[in-house]
Structures are given as C-alpha cells and as structure tokens.
C-alpha cells in the first residue's frame, strides 16, 4: 500500500507545479506589429489540410486561398514568410507561446473561442452545403437529419454549424477532411456538410451523390494573441483596405472557381 501512497505523492507534486505555473507571469512585450518588422520575417501558422483554402501542392509547397492571404500580409509588411504547418493539436499552443505571429486556418470566430485568442474581421465567406446520396429521398435539407448520421471534421466551421442546426442528428467527428469524406463515401455517414466547391467536384465525379441544399454561410478569421491592439488594428485595416477593393473575392474565385458569396455572414 505504501507504494500507492508514493504514487499520490508524485501526483501532488505535479499538481503543485501546475498551480505554480498558473501564477507565473512576465512583463508585456512590444507589439507583434513592431517585432515582425524588426525581424523582417512573418511566422505564419497555417492549416494545410483543407483544400482549396490551405493545402500542399504537387511540389509540397503551401498553396490555396489562406496561403495567398498570408503572402499578401507579408507583402504589405515588406517581410519574408516562415511557414509553420499546424494541426488541431498545436495551432493554439504555437500562437500562445509566441512561436507564430498569427494563425490562418479557416478559423470560425466564435465568442467562446474569442475568450482565448483574438480574431480579426472575417476575410472571406463560403457556402456550406450538405452532400448526400440521391437514393436518400427523405433527406432534402439539414432539417431532415433527425436520427441520421452526419460526418464532419472535428472542430471545423462545418462542425460548429451542423451541431447547432441539426441537434437531433447523430454527429460523428473525424480527425481530418479526407477521413470524413471516405467515411461518407463508404456510407458510415448519411450526409457530409462540406464546402460548396468540394461538393460540386464530388457530385461531378459521382452520379449517385447530390447536394441537399445550403446549410449555412461559413467564414474565416485570422487568429492572433489577445492583448495586442496594435497588431489587431493593423490586420483589420489590412482587411478593410483589400476587402474594399475586392481583392479577397478575386482570390476566392481563383481557388474555388465560384463567386464568393456576399460578405455579410450569417449562421
């Protein structure tokens, strides 16, 4: 039994360490805006698992809408880019430990998340549609999902939207998009809420699939650390300037092949 007691001792020590950690703090540093310019390099945390927004091209170079956006930011700051590939496990830790200056990873900017990171204004919007099978005639829109199985990628804007709009559906959440798509193709899920462009491609390739209507409008924002008003202000000015000139709509068409839906988002 004594051995067990020692085990608890270790746990207590670990707990103490965590409490100690939570009281630590250091002096505030200068704004990321100045740091980036002095450094001459922008560290971009980028999500590259979601074509056409962010993905690796055939030469394993970052490509997509989000990548172009980051390049535009760096161009305006007149600095180089250092890409930091992120996944769901490390994107927030990268940001909060100052290892990247911003994260561009099709972030949905919810109030809950905004308690932890600061979001810029949204920089794009896209239609989230319901991909389904023609033979499932009883499913006409997201309103008919009671008791149906919905496949999504965990934590994405699709997940957020469908969880809210179809509370009586059975939602199965996968780690990444290709696995969720494969699960849908193998009928492990009845429907798959996904970006319009991806659904259009799937419907073209497979005659048994069809689009079961619009689910919602999704949009994405850049995530930065809280408490850095200069950096946030600069990025928002950047958004207004380029958004106003239709730059984002242009980039959207380049990567999606369809027009960007009206900027004002609604869930």
């Amino acid at each position: 039994m004594r051995r067990e007691v020692r085990g608890w001792g270790w746990m207590a020590a670990l707990g103490l360490l965590l409490i100690l950690a939570s009281t630590l703090s250091a002096a505030a540093a200068e704004s990321t805006l100045d740091q980036v310019q002095k450094r001459g390099k922008l560290n971009v945390g980028i999500g590259l698992g979601a074509p056409p927004f962010g993905f690796y091209d055939a030469d394993k170079k970052p490509a997509g809408f989000d990548v172009d956006l980051a390049k535009l930011v760096a161009q305006e700051l007149k600095v180089e880019i250092e890409w930091v590939d992120t996944s769901s496990v490390n994107r927030i830790p990268y940001l909060l430990t100052n290892k990247v200056d911003l994260v561009i990873a099709t972030f949905g900017n919810t109030p809950e998340r905004a308690k932890q990171v600061a979001f810029t204004k949204p920089y794009n919007s896209w239609n989230l549609v319901l991909l389904g099978w023609k033979k499932d005639r009883d499913i006409k829109s997201y309103k008919d999902l009671k008791g149906k199985t919905v496949g999504v990628t965990r934590g994405t804007t699709q997940d957020i939207a469908i969880t809210r709009l179809a509370p009586e559906a059975k939602i199965v959440r996968y780690e990444d998009d290709p696995v969720a798509m494969l699960a849908f193709e193998q009928k492990k899920a009845d429907v798959l809420p996904t970006a319009e462009v991806l659904a259009l491609k799937k419907v073209k390739d497979n005659k048994d699939m069809e689009i079961k209507g619009l689910v919602s409008r999704s949009w994405a924002a850049i995530g930065i650390r809280r408490g850095d008003p200069d950096w946030l202000q600069w990025l928002n000015t950047f958004m207004d300037w380029h958004g106003g000139q239709g730059k984002f709509a242009e980039m959207f068409e380049k990567w999606n092949g369809v027009e960007m839906p009206p900027a004002l988002p609604h869930w």
Binding site: S88, V89, N90, I92, P93, L96, T110, E112, R113, K115, Q116, V117, R154, G155, D159, R173
Partner: peptide, 15 residues
C-alpha cells in the same frame, strides 16, 4: 482524447 479534443475545438484551451 475525443472528449478532450471536442472541448478544445470549442474553447481553444489546449493547454
């Protein structure tokens, strides 16, 4: 892990 990642994606409180 699923439960943890679910909450993480909602709150971004990874640590």
């Amino acid at each position: 892990t699923y439960a943890g990642m679910m909450l993480e994606s909602r709150t971004f409180r990874t640590f």
